[in-house]
Design a protein around this nucleic acid. Structure first.
Lengths: 210, 210
DNA sequence: TCTTTTCCTGACCGTATGGTCAATGTGAAG
DNA sequence: CTTCACATTGACCATACGGTCAGGAAAAGA
């Protein structure tokens, strides 16, 4: 194709390389953890010299922080369906679907997040205390409204949210275990559908949503 | 107390030091991951010189393997209540109680296990393929029996087990996140009880267990 | 074309890590 | 007391890691 000296080739190169590095970093951080990951490994996976990584990201921690923030954005965005629903069945059903889809398409991101939280959230503690806390309080209030309206059982909203997170993210974080128990093969399309249906059915019936 | 030249003081010393090291190692591996953990850190936490660790455990990987195996044993043992129960309500109720208690008392072990599985189970893959696979198949058959006897809904046994693992272990693996959302304080006795009840109530009702 | 800014990278550095070892201490057996 | 296996540890080593930098290539502006 023709590439007639684009006016903003610089910006394109930067954007492309940053995306390339972030993608490789997410995979390496997920597979090896922050401590086990090396800049050399990420560089090799991205097909770039190690020094080039430090040109775009000053330190390993900066790169890691960007990866974690990206995941957080995706998850927050996935919760939109929670708000635009008329009731608990639609909201929770759509939320489970969205989060299961993320677990399937973004397993590495989920693992990096899990690892970060398990290690005490050294780099995203402020996000937990602000954005996530606000988000959680908002959804808990929403759930409480549904309870007050008699549209579902009087369950503890916080623990319900934890169950939603736990069950959906488990398919990403423990995907290797599930795959092993599945005879070594990744879940098929049908099996993913069955997983989604199982989770939705048990949870929705469990909270008495009508 | 009197210590009149015990006949097996040697064995006692070995047992005590190994336990001390394993305990410190579990904590450090949980907080920093395998790659982030250092033998020096473990040694400091155990109050021993680093070289002494290598006297009892040849390599970092050996020490790590022992930690993971210990956790696996505890979890397998916790599943006994699953078998000695007359029906799904008692079995699953007792299993949730047992696993929640482990999450509370052994959060570091749970984190190490989660980390190991997330990174592709490099050191316990054989356990997954043998012991865990057998265990899972056995419980899935048990659940299927209950379904056939009409004692619970026809849910997919595998996905039900995944939900049990996910919801209970979440309280250990994501304990820091839960604590942050709880205003920075660990869950109180009452809150742990509420968590257990929430999980049991939603799951048991969700599978239509009577 | 010339200049400036951005991009790229091989070579290098200080440090921290996992692991070793020789020397020494310490219970127990004869 | 002597002997011997077990236990302890400071000092040491090779390696690998995160990060730096000088100098060159390539794009954008003049």
């Amino acid at each position: 194709m023709d590439e007639p000296a684009r006016p903003q080739k610089r910006n394109a190169i930067r954007a492309q390389n940053e995306a390339l590095i972030l993608q490789a970093a997410e995979k390496v951080f997920a597979e090896a953890g922050f401590g086990g990951a090396t800049m050399q490994l990420i560089a090799d996976m991205a097909g770039l010299p190690k020094a080039n990584l430090h040109y775009y990201f000053a330190t390993k921690e900066d790169l890691y922080r960007r990866v974690v923030q990206n995941i957080f954005e995706i998850w927050l965005h996935a919760a939109d369906c929670f708000d635009n629903a008329p009731g608990p069945v639609e909201a929770i059903g759509a939320y489970v679907d969205a989060k299961m889809e993320i677990s399937r398409r973004h397993p590495n991101g989920s693992k990096v997040w899990a690892s970060e939280v398990m290690h005490g959230a050294p780099v995203i503690q402020d996000y937990l205390e602000t954005t996530l806390r606000d988000w959680t309080a908002g959804r808990a209030a929403l759930i409480q409204n549904w309870i007050d309206e008699g549209r579902m059982d009087a369950v503890n909203p916080d623990h319900l949210l934890y169950m939603l997170w736990a069950t959906t993210q488990h398919y990403a974080d423990f995907g290797h275990q599930i795959e092993t128990l599945n005879g070594g093969a990744p879940l098929s399309d049908a099996q993913w559908l069955a997983a989604k249906d199982s989770v939705k059915r048990i949870l929705l019936k469990g909270i008495g949503a009508v």
